[in-house]
Computed example of a mutant assay.
Amino acid sequence: MTGISGFSSLGLKTKNVVVAGGLIAFVFGVYFYTMRAVGGTYELQTAIDKFERDKNKQDA
């Protein structure tokens, strides 16, 4: 197994823990990045509210 120096000398359980830790860190990083990106702005809701106000003004 060629890869990170010293990784091949670790025991099987230690390798599994290292890989699992890396995967968990990656998944949580993607989750928090996505939640921040999606929840950060209300541009769509603002546009919908403006459209509804304009529509109500035209109807009146």
Rank of each mutant, 00 (worst) to 15 (best):
F28N: 10
V27R: 01
V38I: 14
G22N: 08
N16V: 02
T46N: 15
D59I: 14
I24L: 15
Q45R: 10
K13F: 02
R53F: 05
G21E: 08
F26E: 00
G3R: 05
F26V: 13
S5R: 13
N56G: 03
E43F: 04
D54K: 08
V18M: 04
L44H: 08
F28S: 03
T46A: 12
T14A: 12
S9N: 10
G11L: 04
V18I: 15
K57E: 08
G39R: 09
F7K: 02
K13M: 12
G22W: 05
A37T: 08
G39I: 02
S8T: 06
L23F: 15
V19Q: 06
G6T: 06
S8A: 13
Y31E: 01
A37R: 14
K55L: 12
F26W: 06
G39H: 04
I24N: 02
V19Y: 05
F7R: 01
K15D: 00
G39L: 08
F7G: 04
L12D: 10
L10M: 11
L10R: 09
N16K: 09
K15I: 02
N56C: 04
V30K: 12
E52F: 05
K55P: 01
G39W: 03
V30F: 09
T14V: 15
E43I: 06
I48Q: 10
T46L: 08
T41K: 14
F7Q: 00
G3I: 03
V18L: 13
T34A: 13
T41W: 05
V38E: 06
G29P: 02
Q58L: 11
V17H: 06
A20P: 02
A20S: 15
V19D: 02
R36T: 03
E43V: 11
I48H: 04
L23I: 12
A37V: 10
I4A: 15
M1H: 09
G29H: 03
V17W: 03
Q45D: 07
F26I: 08
D54C: 03
D59W: 00
S9L: 06
Y42I: 07
E43S: 15
F28R: 02
A60R: 14
V18F: 04
K57L: 11
S8K: 14
F32W: 12
V27M: 11
T2E: 11
A37G: 00
I4E: 01
E43H: 07
R53Y: 03
N16C: 04
I48R: 06
G40Q: 14
F26H: 00
G11S: 15
F26C: 09
G29A: 07
K13R: 14
A37M: 10
A37F: 07
L44I: 10
T41D: 11
T14S: 11
T2N: 13
R53M: 06
G40E: 11
Y31C: 05
R53A: 13
V38T: 10
A47K: 14
Y33E: 05
F32N: 08
A25E: 01
Y31D: 01
K13A: 12
L44P: 00
V19L: 13
F28V: 08
K57Q: 09
K55C: 00
G11Q: 14
N16A: 13
S5N: 09
F51Y: 12
Q58C: 02
A47E: 13
K57C: 00
L44M: 10
G40R: 11
F26R: 01
G39D: 09
L12C: 00
Y31L: 12
